[in-house]
Design a protein around this nucleic acid. Structure first.
Length: 428
RNA sequence: GGAGAGGUGGCUGAGUGGUCGAAAGCGGCAGAUUGCUAAUCUGUUGUACGGUGAACUCCGUACCGAGGGUUCGAAUCCCUCCCUCUCCGCCA
């Protein structure tokens, strides 16, 4: 959530920053409502002050021995009643305005960082670096897509998954399931070693929680909902991990907080019909190891770079070629001010595909989720900065392994670092 | 799911409808003092919004689980909801 005070004080600047994302955001309605609301609040505050005063006065007089039925008291009661009536008129107006303002501001995305490249769409994302070209397949023309490899090996199965669920679900079988588990364990072990405290959080979360990280209200159609219980299936562990500290005032010395978690993630993928219908790339349910940081504002940029390194380290250990791109303003996620995507090489597609997204959300989520910290000596509180990144998407990592490690005979070599986990060197 | 109890400030825990933002204790902070890694004493102690201000301050409003209601006035009375705990049932 953006800072309303800041919007009020620098409307044209904020407008210009939002403009970098797209031209669909207009602050004029918000500013107008804010002005009205503030006037009302001031007026109501004055009336309320007088009303409180009368209440106290009556109390004092009665305690002092004045007859409650005396004209003096009656007169005050009349004034009190009159004020009450006026307040009763103002209050709904004020509430209505506050509600409208809230709705507008909750639908405004974060302001892009100054360093975020300008651009309208993903076409203008900027490649930052590449790694692992030595590990590219030597014979790309004969390589097969991971779903074919998986099906042939009997480790990825989709027909029966569709029967028991829907399209965009799969069964992992035998070594497929084992490889998935091995990857989860490997990734967690790596991130724990990098300083993240593991959490195994609930994956059903309430509406407040989704609002805190920015998935609600704007992206309700992206998540699966259990409406009867006000619970949603988490689209990413970023949601429960960040919300661990919702409404908290942390001590400055608790920061930075690093968490990692393995969770299944659930996404409706509304609007992606026909895209990536095969294989492990775009499923309604997938596994992910996530990293989340809560940090002091002045350190968030540096923490962001470190988090990116934690994500890419996994790919380097697995010897999978990747590149890092920085999202341009037009492609930036709702809550992020700056975002790196890590893309792994998928030889069958002949392209890099997203396998991690590392975002610096600044204080945007902290405002929504009301996560603050307090400096011991100082007065008042500050919002923390929140960051999140995949470390990594497990299914897509499996896809990359199957494709990049495939052998001409149809088997798949197990990456060295996974061999201790999987207790074998070849799948097939 | 059934029955009961309860939700108050960082924590423990008082609070008869009227100077209650809330006693007391603990903790925290500041100071004083004492021949000594600690004790004692004194003072202080939340958050948010708005106004004023360079700032400390000051003023107003709101917050005693949430939302309504009664009243001139609600932590206190009434209603609804949420949550926690205990017992029973069920269950991995």
């Amino acid at each position: 959530m953006l800072d309303l005070k800041q919007i009020r004080e620098n409307p044209q600047e904020i407008q210009a920053q939002l403009q970098k994302r797209s031209d669909q955001y207009d602050l004029t309605a918000l500013l107008d409502l804010d002005q009205q609301q503030r006037e009302l609040t001031t007026k109501r505050g004055q009336l309320q002050a007088r009303s409180n005063e009368i209440g106290k006065l009556i109390g004092q007089k009665i305690k002092g021995g004045t007859n409650p039925a005396s004209p003096e008291i009656q007169e005050l009661k009349t004034e009190g009643n009159d004020l009450k009536q006026q307040l009763a008129d103002l209050e709904p107006q004020e509430k209505g305005l506050k509600f409208e303002i809230e709705e507008l501001i909750l639908n405004l995305p974060n302001l892009p960082s100054d360093s975020t490249p300008l651009g309208e769409s993903e076409d203008e994302n900027v490649e930052i670096s590449r790694w692992g070209e030595d590990y590219l397949l030597k014979n790309p023309e004969t390589c097969r897509p991971h779903w074919e490899i998986g099906e042939k090996l009997g480790i990825i199965e989709s027909t029966r998954a569709v029967k028991i669920s829907q399209s965009r679900f799969v069964n992992l079988i035998g070594m497929g399931a084992a490889l998935e588990r091995a990857l989860i364990n490997f990734m967690l072990d790596q991130q724990i070693a990098a300083g993240y405290l593991e959490v195994m959080p609930p994956v059903l979360v309430n509406s407040e929680t989704l609002k805190g990280t920015g998935q609600l209200p704007k992206f309700a159609e992206e998540s699966f909902q259990c409406a009867e219980d006000d619970l949603w299936l988490t689209p990413t562990a970023e949601v429960p991990l960040t919300n661990l500290y919702r409404n908290d005032i942390l001590e400055a010395n608790q920061l930075p907080i690093y968490h990692c978690a393995y969770t299944p993630c659930f996404r409706r993928e509304a609007g992606s019909y026909g895209k990536d219908t095969k294989g492990l790339i775009r499923l309604h349910q997938f596994n992910k190891v996530e990293m989340v940081k809560l940090v002091r504002p002045e350190t968030s940029e540096e923490e962001h770079e470190k988090m990116l390194a934690n994500a890419t380290a996994i790919l380097e250990e697995l010897l999978l070629p990747y590149r890092v791109i920085e999202l341009c303003t037009g492609d930036l996620g709702f809550s992020a001010k700056k975002c790196y995507d890590v893309e792994v090489w998928l030889p069958s597609a002949g392209q890099y595909r997203e396998i991690s997204s590392c975002s610096n959300c600044g204080d945007f989520q902290a405002r929504r989720a009301n996560i603050r910290f307090k400096e011991p000596g100082k007065k008042g509180t500050q919002y923390v900065h929140t960051l999140n990144g995949s470390g990594l998407a497990v299914g897509r990592t499996m896809a990359a392994i199957l494709e990049n490690y495939q052998q001409p005979d149809g088997t798949v070599t197990v990456p060295k670092v996974l061999q201790p986990y999987l207790k074998r060197e070849v799948i097939g």
